[in-house]
Write a protein that binds this DNA or RNA. Sequence first.
DNA 1: TTTTAAGCGAGACGGTACGTCGTGTCTTGTT
DNA 2: AACAAGACACGACGTACCGTCTCGCTTAAAA
Lengths: 199, 199, 199, 199
Amino acid sequence: MDDEQRRRGRPRSAEADRAILEAARDLLIADGYEQLTMQAIAERAGVGRQTVYRRWPSKAGIVAEAVMAGLLSPVPSDMAGGADATAPADLRAWLHAAAVGLSDATNLTIVRALAAAAAETDAGAIRLYRAFTEQGRTDLIDLLRTAVARCEVRADADLEAAADAIQGAVLYTALAYRPPKVEHLDSLADLLLAGLAPR
Amino acid sequence: MDDEQRRRGRPRSAEADRAILEAARDLLIADGYEQLTMQAIAERAGVGRQTVYRRWPSKAGIVAEAVMAGLLSPVPSDMAGGADATAPADLRAWLHAAAVGLSDATNLTIVRALAAAAAETDAGAIRLYRAFTEQGRTDLIDLLRTAVARCEVRADADLEAAADAIQGAVLYTALAYRPPKVEHLDSLADLLLAGLAPR
Amino acid sequence: MDDEQRRRGRPRSAEADRAILEAARDLLIADGYEQLTMQAIAERAGVGRQTVYRRWPSKAGIVAEAVMAGLLSPVPSDMAGGADATAPADLRAWLHAAAVGLSDATNLTIVRALAAAAAETDAGAIRLYRAFTEQGRTDLIDLLRTAVARCEVRADADLEAAADAIQGAVLYTALAYRPPKVEHLDSLADLLLAGLAPR
Amino acid sequence: MDDEQRRRGRPRSAEADRAILEAARDLLIADGYEQLTMQAIAERAGVGRQTVYRRWPSKAGIVAEAVMAGLLSPVPSDMAGGADATAPADLRAWLHAAAVGLSDATNLTIVRALAAAAAETDAGAIRLYRAFTEQGRTDLIDLLRTAVARCEVRADADLEAAADAIQGAVLYTALAYRPPKVEHLDSLADLLLAGLAPR
DNA sequence: TTTTAAGCGAGACGGTACGTCGTGTCTTGTT
DNA sequence: AACAAGACACGACGTACCGTCTCGCTTAAAA
C-alpha cells in the first residue's frame, strides 16, 4: 500500500513551517494573542504572507499547532516522584511546580493566549485545551496511580476526574489571582488527599 | 453641604450606556468575541461610534462592564439549599446546575468570550475573572458554611480554597469537554465531600 | 419712527464677533484655509462653538466677513499718487506695491484661502472676490481717472476693464509664479500704458 | 542593456489609475472640490480606499494629476487662426472662446476646484496653475508671434507677459463676475491691441 | 532535456475595522 | 435670549490587517 504518492512541483519548505511557528510563539509571548497578526508572523518568519496561509487558515490554527508541537508548554512536566516520595509530597510538589510555572509572566501570557485562541475556533477549542493539558494530565494520573499502588490513595477513586479537577483549579487560580494563591493550592492538596485517602 | 458639583455641559445619556452594553451582549452571544467590533456595537445600539469610545476604550472594557453589570451571568445563582438539604445533595445540585448552565451554547460562548477579553486586558483580567465568578463563589462558600454548621463538613476546612477549586474545575471541564463530563463532576463532588468530611 | 424693536433676552456679544473674526484670520494665516475649522476658531476665540454657528453658517462665511471687515487686505491701499506723479509712475508704483504685497507668504496664503473659500460657496464666490478686490479696484480707477484728467490716458478708454485686467493679471502672476515675476508686471505696465496712451 | 529592473510583486493596475482619475473628475464636476472625498472617489472608481492612497496622498494631488492628464481642460485650445485672420480678430476670438468656456458651470466649477486644490498644496500650487494654463499660454504666444510676423504687433513686445496678463484677466473676470463680463474682455482686447500695435 | 506544476517572496487588490477629528445639533446650568 | 461646556449622530480621515490575486523566480518530479 502506497500512502505517500509524491506530489509534483516544488515541495513545501520544512524550514518555513518551523520559522512560522517560532515567529508565532515569539510574537505571542511578546505581545499577546490579540496583537498577533498573520502579517507580523510572516514578516518575522521572513516568509511571504501566502506561505503562511498555505499552511494554516488562521492564527488560532497556528497557535494550536504550536501548542501541539510543544513549543508552548507552560508547566515543566518531569514531576516523576523519587523512590522515597509519598503521595502527599508528590502532589504538593506538582502543584507548587505548576504555581511557580504560572507565576512567570510568559507562561501566564501563553495561557491567556490559549484561552483567546480557543474562544474563536469553537470546533478546535476542545482539541486545543486537551493538547495543552495532556502532558500534565498524564503526569498527574501516573502520579496518582503510583500512590494507589502504594496504598496511599484508595483504589476506587476516579483518578481522571481528580486530575481534571486539579488542572482546572490550577489554571483558574493562575488566571483569577495575581500573585497566584499558593496557599489555596496547598489547601487544595490537603483537601484532595483527604478525599483520596483510603478509608 | 453639596459635594455634588454639577458638571457642566450636557450630561451623558444613561440610555446610551444601557443600549451599548445590551448591544455588546447580544452581539457577543450571537457571534463570539472575535467578531465583536466597536463599529457593530455602536450601530446596534443606535449610537455614534464616538459615544462608545467616550465611555470605554476597547471591547474588552465593554465586556468587562457587561459582566460586572450582571448582563452576562453564566450560572443561575439561586442554589440556596432547602431546609432538609444536606451537604452532598447541595454540592451535587450546584455542580449539576453549573454543568447544565455551561452545556448551553450561549453560556459557553460567554465563558470563552470572557477568556478572550481577559487575554487582552492584562491589568483587568483578574478583576474580570473575579467579577464573573464572584456570585458563584459566594454561593458556594455559603453552601459549605451551612454544611459546617450542620457538622457535615469539618470546621477547619479552607472553604475559599474549596470554592475556587470547584469553580476552576467546573470551568475547565466546560471548556475542555464537549459535552461536559457530568460524571467527572459527580466524581469531583464525591472526592471533595470525602475530603471535607469530618474525621 | 423707530423700526428698531429691541430684541428680548441677552444681546449678542460684540466682543465675540470680533474675537471670532480675529481668531479666524490668525488661524487662516497660520495654517491655510483647508486646516481652518469651526472648532479651532471657537477655541482660539475663547467662545462656545454654538456662538460661532449662531453668527455664521460656515467657515467660508466667516472668511468672507473677515475680508469685508478689512481684516484680510492683501495690498496696502494708500497708493494715492503725489501731486507731481505721472500715470506711468503711478501705475508702476501700484503694480510694484502689489507685487511686494503678494511676495509676502502671509498675503499669498490669504489669496489662496480666498480662492478656496470662493470654491465652496458658489453663491458667495462673486461677492467674496469683489469685496477682496474692491479697494484696489477703486484705487486703480481713481488713479487712471486722474491720468485722464492729466491727458496721460485717453478719454475713451474703458477704465473699469483696465482695472479688472490689472488685478486679474497681478493675482494670477502671484499665484502662478514663485517668486512673482516682477518683470512681467513691468512689461504689463508698459503694455497697458501704451494701450491707454492718447493717440 | 536593460535599465528597467523589473519591480517585484504584483504591478499596479493602470486601470485603477484611470478609474480613480475619472471618478475624481466626475465627482469634482458634480459636487465641487469641498465635497470631494477620498472615500467617494474610491467608491465611484470601484476600488479599495488604500488603492487610492497608494497612489496619491490627498485629493489635491489627484486633482493635480487629473489636470496634468488633460482630464480637466477648461478652454478648447484649437484657436489657430485661419489664413486670412488678423491679430485683432484672433485675439478677440480667443477671448470670446475663453469667455464662453468659462460661462459653462462645469468649467467654472473646475477652475474653482483648481484654486481650492492649489490652496492646500502650497508646494504644488505653482505647478498646478501652470499645468492648467500651459496650453492656453502656448496658444496665445503662438498667436501673438504670428501677429508679430505679420507686423500687426511690434517686435519688441513682451509676449509672455502679455499672455500671462490675458490669462489672468480672463480667469479673474470669470471668477469675479457672473455672468462673465464679455464687454470687459472686448475692451481688454482693444487695450492690449493698442498697446501691442507697432508705433 | 524539456516540460509542467507547485512553492516561494513580494506586493497590489477590494474590503473592513480601527481610533480620531470635525460637523452641525442638542441639552445642561449660568449670566 | 445668549453664553461656555460638552454630549450627541454622523461621516471622512489615514492606517492596519484581512484573505486573495498576480508577478517573476525557484525547485523538483514527469515526460
